[in-house]
Design a protein around this nucleic acid. Structure first.
Lengths: 355, 355
DNA sequence: TTTGGTAATGTTATGCGTAACATCACTATA
DNA sequence: TATAGTGATGTTACGCATAACATTACCAAA
């Protein structure tokens, strides 16, 4: 056999303590069923040899690995970081180990990961699907009877628990806010059309406009990629419009888009909110702690993670399998400076600039 | 046996394709050694049944799990988030899966994690030790012949590769900068005395002061916990000093401390940098992108992760085991607003306020 | 003293895939 | 034609821990 790191096995402990492997196993798993003095001896041997039971062998036998996975598009996005933190927390408390993976919004990477994870016989999965087309993958999971929970992005027709935010509502809130401040030419930088949250946020934006009797203007609707560079390029596109067609406010549909947007505005020497109002979906907590600036709808990211983990644990532990549950967590609307509300309040809500 | 999710095994595939299990195994691992038409038939069966080889069994046999772990104090700290990103990237490209864990700066949690990871027979570990006392744990790893790499915090006398930043140098740079701007009463909020980086940053701070003929003042040296609340409380402690004893500048030895500090200053209605200059170790990239404000020494966090992973892979792949390597990555000094340099420049470097 | 019961411990088989060895069919060589 | 060689495939044993069953020792009840 091609083994190299000759680890200490239960047999070694058994030999050392002068008992059978089974007795050692009992000491570990059902101590009460071993005579006190034998148990003491075995425990001594375990300590001396530094024996750690091989979870691979246990898992092979029991069909449970106590390992889960969290697959997100980008762990360095603070939203997902917080989700991860929540997930890890609950997992750790329940004796589960979590494998993390980045899909980079690529269906292919996602597929590879799931394949690898199935091989490792994870007990379940938490996933932020990269797009509609993840449907096939989720079927694969279902086929292998692996419970999974959708986080942030749910997909119609998929039989699984999901924890999402109210993207439509949040987008409507932000857009309404801008409308209330008098803006009429409001742009949106939205994520890839294949991503449910991007679609919903755009929908909320359009709904709010229409409710105010404004027809959405295609030139003000720009697609990004949920990353900084996408927000930056989208912003440049908006700034390249002839002055009279330019927006007076922009709604960035995620945090990275907002950052790219702000960077582009700064380069163009435009002031926020004086020259351009900005609102954003998702708070950047640390940035806001340092400098409360962006007006946002903030999502309870960590809670996304903890609730999703709870759901998953219930599926794993419970013998029953209730129908799929869907939790929609409402975002918190936080008015800060970037929308210009404080200026508007100071100079009157309906001054010329906004009319 | 207590198995529930009856997964498809190699035997099932073998039966389906009318060959032995061994042949299926060959199709997967050494396709060239199987006749083309047999191979085609087996591949067909694999696809039809959705067979995914059980990595647990493979690992049990080969003694390699192709699983690594990254143990940090807090994955929601953007520094570690970036490290994680770098680690995951390299791991993914090399066919490794990464388990992430938070130790919360607790030696006990760290111990528990390592125990669990050893049980899972991870091939190696990347770790940001929570303190000196992690020594025993690292011995445990060594005893189990698991290679590990220390990230961000190295410990004297431990035989392992490490990737760290130049904490002393970075701290010296920041402190010198404040001194050059004319500050004489400079405070430091440093991390737990058990953490190497905290010690080094304090050392660099004190060295810089002494080099300018200033004796470190104990009342200006406050210990935090590397978290926001620690920075906040430390700041309050500094602000509670009688006016003439108060610092005119504060050096926060990590990003979270800086945030807590700024929050406390804002609550006290003190302006930064006019009323209090602030510099900080570690950049908060997203915050700075949004609003370039904090003067910092920024560390190439992601590179920490990629280099550490490279080291680990070399230990895993290579038959040779070179002596421990230590990489010290220099931080980048970025002057922005919080130190007041732009004001000093405008009103002259040695005006009354700073003298 | 015999018998049934229980506590303590051991033996065997199993999970799943593969290394090592074995077998079989067929071809090239002498 | 006999033999060695090669390719294709099968059989057995093993990694490690444990469920299920077996055995042993000992005690209480009859």
């Amino acid at each position: 056999m091609a083994r190299e790191p000759t680890a200490v096995t239960i047999q070694d402990v058994a030999a050392h303590a002068g008992v059978s492997a089974m007795t050692v196993s009992r000491v570990i798993n059902q101590p009460a069923r071993v005579a006190a003095r034998t148990r003491a001896r075995v425990e001594q041997s375990i300590r001396e040899l530094g024996f750690v039971p091989n979870a691979l062998a246990q898992s092979l036998l029991r069909g449970r690995t106590h390992t889960l996975a969290l697959l997100v598009s980008d762990i360095s996005n603070p939203f997902f970081t917080q989700v991860a933190r929540g997930v890890e927390d609950v997992a750790q408390r329940n004796g589960y180990t979590v494998i993390f993976g980045n899909s980079d919004e690529s269906v292919e990477k996602e597929r590879q990961y799931i394949q690898a994870l199935l091989g490792r016989r994870i007990d379940g999965l938490l996933i932020t699907t990269s797009s509609h087309s993840s449907h096939a993958m989720l079927d694969l999971l279902a086929r292998h009877e692996k419970p999974f929970v959708l986080i942030d992005r749910s997909i119609d027709g998929v039989q699984a628990d999901s924890v999402v935010g109210d993207s439509i509502g949040g987008a409507r809130t932000l857009t309404n806010h801008l409308l209330t401040l008098g803006h009429r030419r409001i742009a949106i930088i939205h994520g890839p059309a294949a991503v449910p949250t991007a679609i919903d946020r755009r929908r909320g934006y359009e709904e709010a406009l229409r409710a105010h009797g404004i027809a959405p203007d295609p030139t003000l609707i720009v697609e990004g990629n949920f990353k900084r560079d996408g927000g930056y390029r989208a912003a440049q596109q908006l700034l390249a419009l002839p002055p009279e067609q330019r927006p007076t406010a922009v709604f960035a549909d995620n945090n990275f888009h907002a950052i790219g947007l702000i960077e582009a505005l700064r380069e163009a020497q435009l002031r926020v909110p004086e020259d351009m109002a900005v609102v954003c979906f998702d708070d950047i907590e640390l940035a806001s702690a340092l400098h409360p600036f962006l007006t946002v709808v903030a999502q309870p990211a960590r809670t996304f993670g903890t609730i999703a983990m709870q759901f998953l644990l219930e599926r794993l532990d419970g013998t029953e399998s209730p129908p799929p549950r869907k939790v929609v967590l409402p975002p918190e609307f936080i008015v800060r400076e970037s929308c210009g509300a404080h200026l508007a309040a100071r100079i009157g809500a309906t001054n010329g600039r906004y009319s």
